[in-house]
Amino acid sequence: MKISLTVNGEKRALDVKPETRLLDLIRDDLGLTGTKEGCGKGECGACTVIMNNKVVASCLVLAAQADGAEIKTIEGLGGKDKLHPLQQAFIEKGAVQCGFCIPGMIMSSKKLLDENINPSEEDIKRGLSGNICRCTGYVKIVDAVKEAAHKIKSGGEENV
C-alpha cells in the first residue's frame, strides 16, 4: 500500500506492506538506522521516535498507521556540524556508554523538554521511564537532560 509521511521535515511517499512496522520503514526503507531495535515488543524504548508530537515506540506502530504523520528521528535533531543541546549535553555529561539506547533516550528527552523546560528530577525520571539503559545507571542521563534544559533556556541554540 502507498503511504506518505513527513520524516525530519522531508515529505516521503512509500509503498509498504501491511505488516511493515514504522521501525522497519525508518530503518530499512529510509535507511535512518539511528533508530534502534532492542526488543521489538515495546519494552525497551530503543526505537523511540516522535510521531505527531507524541513519543512512540516505533516497533509497535504499523507503517500504515503513520500515513500522513509527521515523524522526527534522531537524524532530524542535529548532525555533527550542529548538535542539538541534548546531544551536546549527553556528550559533555558522559551519559553515553555503549550508546545503543541513546537515540531513543534523546528523543524521549526532547519530547520532555518541549513540554517542560524546567523539569524536576521526578519529571525527568517519569519522562524517560520507558527507555531502558543497561550501561549507565541513568545518573548521567538525568544530569544531561538537566544540562540540556539549562542550555536551551540560556538560549545558546535555536532550532530546538
Binding site: 532492542g38 526488543c39 515488543k41 519494552e43 525497551c44 525527568i124 525520571k125 517519569r126 524517560l128 521511564s129 527507555n131 531502558i132 539503559c133 543497561r134 545507571g137 541513568y138 545518573v139 542521563i141 538525568v142
Partner: peptide, 13 residues
C-alpha cells in the same frame, strides 16, 4: 522477554 525479565529502569535509581 523484557516484560517478564525486569532490569532497573530510571525510576529505580
Amino acid at each position: 522477554d523484557m516484560t517478564n525479565y525486569l532490569v532497573p529502569s530510571i525510576q529505580d535509581i
